[in-house]
């Protein structure tokens, strides 16, 4: 037994969408307090991994297990996984006209509290928390009364995702290409937010194409996902090597 508590453990995961196998025996172990980066070429299965872990129903897990704190969550619905502490920062956050950011967050937090057998959060505490977390992400209060993601710029959408993460305080946060569509200032704000939120009791999985984000959110481990499997793991130096050499050498290695 490792002395570290394994928070998320994925064992020999096979997953398909519309009968096409995307994940082909993926293994990943993430301990509390760690930041893992998952990199890899397009079509390797990065977003599929994020969707499968968060419980998207279109994906069928054909074999393998996903353990959160030692509990198999594979049979749980997306909202139940959220209640247990899984969070996905979407690559493409969905626009929901007519639902304000604030009301969405209130509903999400209170639904989660309800599922955990807690009372609704008192309005004053909620407001305080919203204020505190929005300041962390440098979000204007006017922004909070706008319809969720509707007409938001790419940077605003991603900042709003991390704001939601800050509000929900998940155990395992998966950031799916959170850096895409961000300019350097937005990237800094988002990364700063993530860094402030990570701690010894939670873990972050950063899915990205580029090393750039990893300058700001420094990973403990970097994994290369290729053709549905983790084919290489290393430290942050691996990310630098990938940035320099691209993915072709990984592909060559796999063929060999």
């Amino acid at each position: 037994m490792s002395k570290y508590k394994s928070m998320l453990e994925i064992k020999d995961l096979h997953a398909s969408v519309e009968d096409k196998e995307i994940l082909k025996g993926l293994n990943l172990k993430v301990n509390a307090g760690e930041v893992h980066a998952i990199m890899g070429p397009n079509g390797a299965g990065k977003s599929t991994l994020a969707s499968v872990v968060s419980g998207k129903e279109e994906y069928e897990v054909t074999s393998g297990t996903i353990l959160l704190d030692g509990e198999d969550i594979e049979e749980l619905a997306a909202e139940e996984r959220a209640h247990k502490g899984i969070f996905l920062s979407f690559q493409y956050p969905v626009e929901i006209p007519g639902v304000s950011v604030t009301n969405f967050m209130k509903t999400a937090i209170n639904e989660t509290r309800k599922a955990r057998g807690l009372e609704e959060m008192p309005a004053r505490d909620m407001l305080k928390k919203i204020k505190e977390k929005s300041e962390l992400l440098e979000i204007d209060s006017k922004f909070l009364s706008r319809s969720l993601n509707e007409g938001f710029s790419g940077g605003e959408k991603k900042r709003n995702e991390i704001f939601q993460m800050a509000m929900l305080e998940p155990k395992v946060a998966i950031l799916d290409e959170t850096d895409s569509g961000l300019d350097i200032d937005a990237l800094r704000i988002v990364a700063n937010g993530v860094n402030k939120l990570k701690g010894k009791d939670n873990a972050v999985i950063v899915i990205t194409h580029y090393q750039r984000l990893l300058d700001y959110i420094v990973p403990d481990f970097v994994h290369v996902l290729y053709d549905g499997k983790i084919v290489k793991s290393g430290t942050k130096d691996l990310a630098l090597e990938l940035e320099e050499k691209g993915y072709d050498w990984i592909k060559e290695e796999q063929k060999a």
């Binding site: 968060s54 909202e79 959220a82 626009e95 639904e111």
Partner: peptide
């Protein structure tokens, strides 16, 4: 949109 909301804990 439904999946997005469910992933935030909303049944």
């Amino acid at each position: 949109a439904l999946f997005y909301m469910r992933s935030r804990g909303i049944a």
